[in-house]
C-alpha cells in the first residue's frame, strides 16, 4: 500500500487527484474518483455560481468522501465561485491559471485546504507563503493550460524550494509515472487524461474516441506566440487553423483569443471533431481503455507499488 502525507492531510486512501477539467469534471466524475479512494475534483470552469452549487450538490449526494473544486482564476465568475466554495465549506480547492492570493484569506478562514497548481519555483514559493497546504507542480506534458517546464525538470526543483507537500502532474497515466514522480520527491499525483476514459466521465463519446485513438505525437500546443492562453490539445482542424492564424503576419493577441472561444464546449458536450478543442496530455497515447474510476486508481497503485518495491533492482 502506498501512503503519503497527502493521504493523511486530505483523508483519502490513495495519493491521487483527478484533474479539474473544464466542461468535463462534474459532480458525478468527482464523486466516482472520491469513492475510488482518490480526490475527485469538480471544475468550476467559466460557469457561474448556480452550476457549481448544483455540481457540489450532486457530488455530495453520491459520496461521503472528501472532494475538491478547481477554480480557474481567469474565469469571469471567479469572485462568485470563490465565495461559493467558502460558503459550502468544500474541503479542498485547487486553483489554475494564475495566483489565488486574493482569495486565500477567505478560504483559509473557511477551513479550506488550498492547493494551487504551479508551473514554476517562484509560483510555488509564493503559494507557500500565502498559506497553501500543498502545491500541484504541473509540467507542460499536461493537457489544457500549461507552462513551459516538463514534469521531470519542474517537480524536483519545486520539491527543493518549498516545505509543503508537492503533487506532480503532467505526463502521468499509469503506475510507472506515479513511481517516477515519487522518486522525484512528489507525495501525490494528479491525472487528467486517464480519467477522461473513466466510465463515469460524462464527456462526449467522440472525445473519448479521440483520446483512445491518440498516439505519442497526437497533441500540439497552441497560444505560445502571445502567451496567456498556452494550451495543449489533440491535433485536428481546430488546432491546424488556430496555428495558421496565430502565426499569420497580421495576428494580434485579441484576434487569437477570439479563436478559442466556445471550442472546449464544442468538444466536450457536442463532440465536434472538426471545430472542438480536445484538451489532452502527451500521455494520451498510453490511455487505451475505458474503465470505472475506482478500477483505474487500483490498477495504477498496484503497479506503482510493485515498481517501487522492485526499485532496488538497479542498486548493486
Amino acid at each position: 500500500m502506498i501512503k503519503s502525507p497527502i493521504c493523511e492531510m486530505l483523508k483519502i486512501d490513495y495519493p491521487i487527484f483527478q484533474g479539474g477539467m473544464a466542461w468535463i469534471a462534474d459532480g458525478r466524475l468527482a464523486a466516482a474518483v472520491s469513492n475510488g479512494g482518490g480526490l475527485g475534483i469538480i471544475s468550476a470552469m467559466n460557469a457561474g455560481g448556480d452550476y457549481l452549487k448544483r455540481q457540489i450538490e450532486i457530488a455530495r449526494s453520491l459520496t461521503d468522501r472528501p472532494f475538491g473544486v478547481n477554480i480557474m482564476l481567469m474565469s469571469p465568475h471567479v469572485d462568485e465561485v470563490a465565495e461559493i466554495v467558502a460558503e459550502e465549506r468544500v474541503p479542498v480547492v485547487t486553483t489554475g491559471a494564475g495566483s489565488p492570493i486574493k482569495y486565500m484569506e477567505r478560504w483559509l478562514e473557511a477551513g479550506i485546504t488550498v492547493i494551487p497548481v504551479v508551473a514554476s519555483v517562484a509560483m510555488a514559493k509564493r503559494a507557500e507563503r500565502s498559506g497553501a497546504a500543498a502545491v500541484i507542480a504541473e509540467g507542460e506534458e499536461s493537457g489544457g493550460h500549461i507552462g513551459e517546464l516538463t514534469t521531470m525538470a519542474l517537480v524536483p526543483q519545486v520539491c527543493d524550494a518549498v516545505d509543503i507537500p508537492v503533487i506532480a502532474a503532467g505526463g502521468i497515466a499509469d503506475g510507472r509515472g506515479v513511481a517516477a514522480c515519487f522518486m522525484l520527491g512528489a507525495v501525490g499525483v494528479q491525472l487528467g487524461t486517464r480519467f477522461l476514459l473513466a466510465k463515469e466521465c460524462p464527456v462526449h463519446p467522440n472525445y473519448k474516441e479521440m483520446v483512445l485513438k491518440a498516439t505519442d505525437i497526437s497533441t500540439v500546443v497552441t497560444g505560445r506566440r502571445f502567451g496567456g492562453h498556452t494550451c495543449r490539445s489533440i491535433k485536428n482542424d481546430f488546432t491546424r487553423n488556430f496555428l495558421k492564424e496565430e502565426y499569420a503576419p497580421d495576428a494580434t493577441p485579441e484576434k487569437i483569443e477570439e479563436l478559442g472561444v466556445g471550442a472546449l464546449r464544442l468538444a466536450a458536450l457536442e463532440g465536434d471533431k472538426k471545430n472542438g478543442c480536445f484538451l489532452a496530455g502527451q500521455i494520451a497515447g498510453l490511455v487505451n481503455k475505458e474503465q470505472p474510476a475506482a478500477e483505474i486508481i487500483r490498477e495504477i497503485f498496484e503497479e506503482a507499488e510493485a515498481l517501487l518495491k522492485g526499485a532496488s533492482l538497479w542498486v548493486k
Binding site: 494564475g98 495566483s99 508551473a119 514554476s120 519555483v121 517562484a122 509560483m123 514559493k125 509564493r126 507552462g147 513551459e148 502567451g227 496567456g228
Partner: peptide, 16 residues
C-alpha cells in the same frame, strides 16, 4: 514586459 519576452511566470520570478 511583453516586448522583452517576459511572460507571467517570468514576472513572478522577477517580483520574487
Amino acid at each position: 514586459f511583453a516586448d522583452l519576452g517576459i511572460d507571467s511566470l517570468d514576472v513572478t520570478e522577477l517580483v520574487m
